[in-house]
Structures are given as C-alpha cells and as structure tokens.
Design a protein around this nucleic acid. Structure first.
Lengths: 216, 216
DNA sequence: GGGTTAATACTCGTCTACGAGTACCCGTAC
DNA sequence: GTACGGGTACTCGTAGACGAGTATTAACCC
C-alpha cells in the first residue's frame, strides 16, 4: 500500500486539478467545480474546502499568489499550484488509477448481515433498490447521450464508468431477486425458519463453533 | 434522504449485528468479527470500536449487561442489545438495502481529472489496474467456490456481489483500454496534443467559457 | 430610497475517527 | 523464580471533516 498522503481528502485532488490550470481563490474553485458538475461526483463540503486548501498550502502544494480586495468583498486569497503540488497531483492520480482499492461498501456490509431480516422483507427491499437503480440508470444514460453531442468524450469517462457499474449492480440485484422469487435460492427454507422461530439452526451453530479458518 | 443516524459509523452496524445473537464485551465482538472474516469487508479500527460502542450505549441501542472480572484481566463490560437497538439495526438495514447510495468513488474522481496525465501514461496505469483486478477476481472466485462447499450460500451473498462488481470494473477497464490502444477513442489526438504542448485546445477553452448549464 | 433577497466569501466550534500507546496478565523457557 | 514474548482489553490525544453561522455587497422591486 502506498505511503499515506499528506492531504487525504478527495477534495484536495479536485482542488489541485482545478488550480492546475490557473490560480484561484477558494470560493472560485468551488464555483468552478460546481459549474462543471463535479459536485455530482463529489459533494463539496464548505467546511472542508478551506481546511483542505489550508493543508495543501501548509505542505507546500499550494502557495498564496496574492490577496486581492476587489469590489469591496472580504479579502480573497488567491492560490497558485507549486511544482510540488503538480508532482503530488500526478503521483496521487497514478496511484488512484493503478491500484484498485476496496472502498467502504455499505451495501456489502448490509448484505453480510441481512439474515436478521426475513427473506420476504429482503426481497421487497431489493425490489425497491432495483427500481431506484433503474431510474437512476435511465437518467444517467439519457444525460450521457445528451452531453455526448456537445462535450468531448474525454470529459465523460467517469460518467461512462459510473453507468457501467450501476448497470452491473442492477444486473446482480435482478438475478439475486430472481433466485429469491422463484425459490431457487438454496437456503431459503433455513433462512425463513431461522427468522420466524428465532432459532439458530444446528448447521449454523456448528459453523459458528468451528469459526476461523476463513483467513487464507 | 433518510434521517441521519445517531450512530453513523458502519462499525456500529457490525456491532449491533454481532450483539444481536448474544451479549458480549467489545474485545470479544472484535475477535468474533475477525474470525468471521468480516474484517475483510470492513477493517476494524480499534479506536473506533470503543467510541462506537459508547455511542450506541449513549443512544440506548446497547445496555451494560454486567461487568465481569475474570481471571484478573482488567474489567470487561459486557453489552447486550436493547429493543431500540434491534429496531435501529433493522431500520438501518432496510435503508441500506432499499436505497442505493453513491459512495465516494475515488476512482471516478481520478478519472474525472485524468487529463493531466498523458494518454500513454493513463494507458499503462490502467493496464496495471486491470492486472491487479484480474488477480483479485481470480482469488475471490477461487475462494468462493471453495467455501460454497462448506458454508451455506446465505453467508456468501456479499462475496458474490463483490465479485460481480469487480468483474464489471474489469470489463469496463478492458474495453476502455481497448479503445485507447486501437486508437478508436475519439479525443486521443486532442488529448495528446494538449498534454504535450500544455496548450488548452480552443474547443475546450470555449467549453470552459460557456460553463454551467450542466445542472438540470 | 428603504427594504428584502440572493450571492459571495469565509470562520468557528463541534464531533468523530483513528492510531499509537498503556497496563495488565499468562504461559513458558531457562 | 524471574525474564520476556504475546495476547487481552482498553484509553487518550490529535487531526480532520463538516455544518451552521456571519458579514458584506449587489440586485431588484415598488
């Protein structure tokens, strides 16, 4: 695993990438990102923005370019990227792209303990999830084809990727649901029984006894 | 969006699910989770465990069952789940399953700014990523078929899901790489030029001017 | 031209996550 | 019998993330 970053917040990446082109003050960065729709990928947290910019400066990735007072607004500090900053941005990007990392997957965590709900309820919840996914996918796809006409694809890669992953999620959910509804899921009976009676079935108790061994 | 949880850390979910079956003290929960290999899905942070358990207690989801001193170890506080805790667990699970949520996707963030690296470097990085993904997939698949023989599938759903998603990631990467290497990616020239000369090409500058509009 | 709203550009304090450290006990090996 | 390596069970300090608040100006309306 790579050395830990001086600034770990993803907002830092966005900031570096934004300032890469031209010096800006924090608020301008935010507006820029918002306009570009990057706040879809990554919601901008106001509190974090200033902290992150401050940290980037502290570690020498950004430098104060000037402090202007125009119009009469409160002072704005304009930052420019440093050579170290450019290096950090590239290095960080290289790592992010080359090394696939398991992100904290909430849904997976939920699946791993979904036994505490009964199979019927899980089925209906999954149906809701699937419906939501399908809607989002349709919207995204529509937006994507719309933009493809006006924006170079280079700027849409992440949307394409996102769409592909969503579709995979939906496909998996659909096939799992199918197993649950047709009853071809093998442990359905055990599960239902366990849920309804609250009794831990013997084969599971036994597994719990044995424990361990799963770490190879 | 759902009401924010009193305890938001995913470790809380794991704790609730663990204590659901039988009262335990924190360290025991951790060992239990570790044995079950849940620490693969969700790395256990020692500092967080006690904080999270404390918070769960504060909000009435856990209660102190007893404080035992056995052997002479420092005192261990055994916690049991309360009715409110059981409710919270179920409610939380329902939300996690029914509502698909965009998690902070680092790779996507990286893709969205990958223009600052040249196309050739991105290609080679993606190749590394793909290789890593393929290895992981092979391992996971092997592990999955191995366990399928000894553990009910009910306990392997999250692994199956994970595998499916990984495969989709790999497939997408492969197809994108393909476009890059065969040169069928439309903006390749622009990109390379931009990177090598550092010049913002006119069509992009124009886009930057127009800005906005992407928020519908 | 006074008042209301919206946008700009931050600041501050809270709350949480986490990692490194601590203290204690047990087995065992010499 | 005592030195020490390792497991157990936890504590605490710090850094970071974040949301809500604030102050100033521009814009608009009657």
């Amino acid at each position: 695993m790579a050395k830990r970053r001086k600034v770990g917040n993803m907002l830092g990446l966005a900031v570096l990438a934004t300032v890469y082109a031209k010096p800006m003050h924090p608020y301008e960065m935010a507006s820029f990102l918002r306009e570009r729709g990057k706040d879809r990928d990554m919601r901008i947290k106001w509190g974090s923005l200033y902290t992150v910019v401050g940290n980037l400066e502290k570690h020498g990735f950004l430098a104060r370019a000037e402090t202007v007072r125009d119009g009469g607004h409160p002072e704005r500090t304009v930052y420019r990227i440093t050579d170290a900053g450019r290096e950090e941005l590239k290095d960080w990007l290289r790592e992010l792209i080359a090394v696939p990392e398991r992100e904290q997957p909430k849904f997976e965590a939920a699946l791993s303990v979904c036994g505490v709900l009964g199979p019927d309820e899980v089925t209906s919840l999954l149906r809701q999830r699937l419906a939501a996914l399908d809607t989002e996918i349709a919207e995204e796809r529509e937006a994507l084809t719309r933009y493809t006409r006006e924006v170079p694809r280079l700027f849409l890669i992440e949307a394409e990727y996102d769409l592909a992953i969503r579709e995979a999620e939906a496909a998996w959910t659909r096939s799992f649901l199918d197993e649950l509804t047709t009853g071809s899921f093998p442990d359905l009976m055990t599960w239902r029984n366990w849920y309804e009676t609250g009794q831990t079935p013997p084969e599971i108790a036994e597994l719990a006894e044995r424990g361990g061994g799963t770490t190879s």
